[in-house]
């Protein structure tokens, strides 16, 4: 039995028939073809699936698509400007080499943007604690911490 879900994703209204058990991340990846949102663990621990729902960073693997009915969703594909200019947080990750294989990166960036809104000038410890829910196996976090610290300042202008 299929159900219809409708929401706004990256500024566009989308609607589809899905099985009720369809996860939000599956809806985003498989139905909308937005494959920048990744699945790393299926258990809400690695954070690779982090997106914004109604302005807050959430893990799209741990809710079903129906729960996002009428929500305003932003994925990594909706973060840069329409002309392709990187968001200040994306630019900071590039400048500080805050990514290697790139798999955890979209989730890191989405979490970092949400965090930076409330922490315009974070301490190293605050950044490290804010990353509790995002795992990276490549960078050792050193440059991610630097990137988020710089990105938060850049976002605050």
């Amino acid at each position: 039995m299929a159900v219809r879900v409708s929401m706004t994703v990256n500024g566009k209204a989308v609607s589809a028939e899905v099985e009720p058990r369809t996860l939000l991340v599956t809806f985003i990846r498989e139905h909308l073809g937005l494959t920048g949102t990744h699945v790393g663990c299926d258990t809400a621990q690695c954070g690779a699936c982090t997106i914004h729902m109604n302005g807050k960073a959430i893990k799209a693997c741990s809710m079903v698509a129906m729960q996002a009915q009428d929500a305003n969703v932003v994925t990594i594909e909706g973060v840069a400007k329409p002309d392709g200019t990187l968001h200040p947080m994306q630019a900071a990750f590039k400048e500080h080499h805050g990514l290697q294989c790139g798999f955890c990166t979209p989730g890191m960036v989405m979490n970092a943007i949400d965090f930076a809104k409330s922490h315009p000038n974070p301490s190293e410890q605050e950044v490290r604690e804010a990353l509790e829910g995002n795992l990276c196996r490549c960078t050792g976090y050193h440059n991610i911490v630097k990137a988020i610290t710089a990105g938060a300042k850049a976002m605050a202008g």
Binding site: T35, L99, T105, P106
Partner: peptide, 21 residues
């Protein structure tokens, strides 16, 4: 030198095996 590969990873344009349909 900043990395050539970063733009695609930062914008969700990377293509990993599971992204291939």
């Amino acid at each position: 030198i900043q990395r050539k590969e970063d733009y695609r990873f930062l914008t969700g344009s990377g293509q990993y095996t599971d992204d291939v349909v």
